[in-house]
């Protein structure tokens, strides 16, 4: 038998297409799928949020309460009760039993609303607040989320984020899904935050008869974080914009602005115990 040395023609075992082209197709497909699903779910959860009975919400709340048991705080609860006491008689919020918790271990300057009338205040926020009026503005803002049922809408969408991460799980790339989602969330949430601010401002006026201190907290935030770009993709609007918007509302509605009541000395240290 005669042996004729010959090299194979071309690389038959590898595909010729460019890897970057493949990346573009795959990422494009995945993102499109995720965005469609997210928007659809956003819509569905919006409808659900409006029609979800309060009993069901209270049941969800009772499951979450367990996480924060023992973190109740008399000072914060008194402030919250003060605000609830001045709600208009026809307010839907009267159906809720509001409870507030202080998460000492969380340094974030943040507070959030959970189903069933639960509000969680992070320790970092309490340290950043300087007057009782500011604190009440933030609590009133959270109550605004309940009034608009924002907390339920966000919950539906965060489910899809968890699902998307799970699809890509086991890899560092799973960070990407929450990132994309948080950018989408921004579309919904910045609008919601502004609406909650407006609602909260009105309640603050009912509570004190004036809205002094409503913008102080955001003003300080804006000074701390001058970098606008950081807020470009954030879920909350740029604090400077919130101050502007609140000031415009104060002017429109003719709310009075008087002196604020400073937080009692040592209250932060005392609450840490």
């Amino acid at each position: 038998m005669k042996f004729t040395p010959k090299l194979a023609d071309g690389d038959v075992n590898i595909s010729a297409s460019h890897p970057l082209k493949e990346l573009a197709w795959l990422v494009g497909g995945f993102v499109t799928f995720l965005v469609l699903f997210y928007v659809l779910l956003g819509f569905v959860s919006g409808v659900l949020a409006i029609s979800l009975p309060l009993k069901a919400e209270a049941w969800m709340g009772s499951k979450i309460t367990i996480l924060y048991e023992g973190q109740t705080n008399t000072f914060l609860q008194q402030h919250l009760d003060g605000l609830v006491g001045v709600l208009p008689n026809d307010s839907v919020l009267h159906e809720y039993t509001f409870r507030i918790f202080l998460d000492d271990e969380e340094d974030q300057v943040n507070a959030f609303a959970l189903p069933g009338g639960l509000i969680v205040v992070c320790g970092g926020l309490l340290e950043a607040v300087q007057s009782e009026n500011e604190l009440d503005m933030i609590l009133a803002h959270e109550l605004g989320h309940f009034a608009h049922r924002d907390h339920l809408q966000a919950m539906g969408r965060s489910l899809i984020v968890a699902f998307g991460s799970w699809l890509l799980s086991g890899d560092g790339s799973s960070d990407v899904v929450p990132w994309i989602a948080s950018k989408l969330e921004r579309k919904y949430s910045q609008k919601q935050e502004i609406a909650a601010d407006a609602w909260g401002l009105d309640l603050l006026n009912r509570r004190y008869g004036h809205v002094g201190g409503a913008t102080d907290f955001f003003k300080r935030l804006a000074e701390d974080k001058k970098d606008r770009l950081a807020y470009f993709l954030a879920t909350h609007p740029y604090p400077g914009d919130r101050v502007q918007y609140l000031n415009a509302l104060i002017g429109q509605n003719g709310y009075g602005v008087k002196d604020t009541i400073p937080l009692p000395k040592g209250i932060v240290a005392e609450m840490g115990e």
Binding site: D175, V176, P178, K225, D227, L229, A230, F232, L233
Partner: peptide, 8 residues
Amino acid sequence: DFLINNSG
């Protein structure tokens, strides 16, 4: 800030 917030 942008880099830190989106470090992932």
